[in-house]
Simulated scan of single mutants.
Amino acid sequence: MDRVARTEAGGYRDRLLAGAVSCLQEKGYARTTARDLVAASGTNLASIGYHFGSKDALLNEAIAAFFEQWTERVEQTLFAGRPGSARELLELAMRALIDVFEELRPQLVLCVEGFPAALRAPALKEKLAESYARCRTAGADMLRRAGEQFGVELPVEPEVLVSVLVAISDGLMLQWLLDPAATPDAGQVVAALAALSGLIA
């Protein structure tokens, strides 16, 4: 493949992913067709098969890409500040997970709509499970590096902490989509966790 062809192929893949995100946000997982994807991306039907194998594989990749991008945002937030305690480190992480809901609303809807679809689509279920696994691994690594860099001693194993933080974020994401005004922010969540810790210590 010559340089022009390689450039075009790479451009088509990116355009297909962008088109898939647009379609998923507008129509949802079940209602998005291959022709919708072609129209949104300005590509052609053959390019879907060439780059992703199928329409469903393209949609699955688009959903997984959002998880990856969100994980990267969390990392940038953690290492942009200088927390002096485990609580400050936790609050930084929660800001990147919770206080961004308004900014990420279209992607959150896309994410939530992917869950019921995954229950009936083994390939999507596997893709989302892989995304969560990468998120846990990356998150644990971030916390270890942050703890070492800032001299913060983590109160529990990083893998356990990341799983709990993701569960809290996912649950609050659902609450926020239904009733934003009643959903606590990162500071309130950390305060609540600290209060619970005092009750059960």
Rank of each mutant, 00 (worst) to 15 (best):
K55C: 02
T137W: 11
S197V: 04
M142I: 11
Q76A: 15
P184R: 09
S22L: 05
E126Y: 04
V162L: 02
R15V: 02
L193W: 04
C111D: 11
V162Q: 01
N44K: 05
D185H: 08
A118F: 00
R144S: 08
E68G: 08
W176L: 06
A34C: 02
G187M: 10
A181G: 06
P116A: 02
G10D: 07
N60F: 00
G11V: 07
W70S: 08
A18I: 01
E72F: 03
L196N: 00
G198C: 05
S47M: 06
A167G: 14
E61G: 00
P83S: 09
F66S: 12
D170L: 05
A64L: 01
I48Q: 00
A201S: 14
F67D: 13
L17T: 03
E26F: 00
E88R: 04
G28A: 08
G49D: 02
V4L: 12
D2L: 09
A121L: 14
A195M: 11
G171R: 12
A192P: 08
R144N: 10
L92R: 05
A181L: 08
D14Y: 00
K125E: 12
A80N: 15
L199R: 15
A195T: 13
E153S: 09
R136V: 15
R6I: 13
M1D: 12
R35W: 06
M94I: 06
L124R: 04
W70K: 07
L78T: 05
F52L: 11
G147V: 03
E126M: 11
Q107V: 06
L45G: 08
E75V: 04
D179N: 14
L104R: 15
T33N: 01
A182F: 10
E130C: 11
T33M: 01
S197K: 08
A146E: 11
N44D: 04
D99C: 10
E61F: 01
A80R: 15
A80G: 15
G28M: 07
N60H: 06
Y12E: 13
A146W: 08
R73S: 13
A20F: 01
R31L: 14
A167F: 01
I200L: 14
A192C: 09
Q175N: 15
E91C: 07
A93N: 14
M1H: 14
A123H: 12
V112A: 12
A20Q: 02
G11Q: 10
A181D: 12
Q149S: 15
L104W: 10
R105A: 12
P83F: 04
V112Y: 07
L104N: 14
A138I: 10
E148I: 11
G10L: 09
M94S: 06
A140H: 08
G11P: 07
D2P: 15
A93R: 15
G53L: 03
F150M: 11
Y50T: 11
Q188T: 11
G139L: 03
L90D: 03
E26A: 07
T33Q: 00
A191I: 02
L89G: 06
A140G: 10
S85I: 04
I200N: 08
E103I: 03
H51V: 01
Q25V: 14
Y50L: 13
Y50D: 09
A34P: 03
A133I: 07
N44A: 06
L128A: 03
E130F: 08
L92G: 02
V164G: 05
R82Q: 14
N60L: 00
D141H: 12
L178W: 14
A192L: 11
L199T: 14
D14L: 01
G49T: 06
V38R: 00
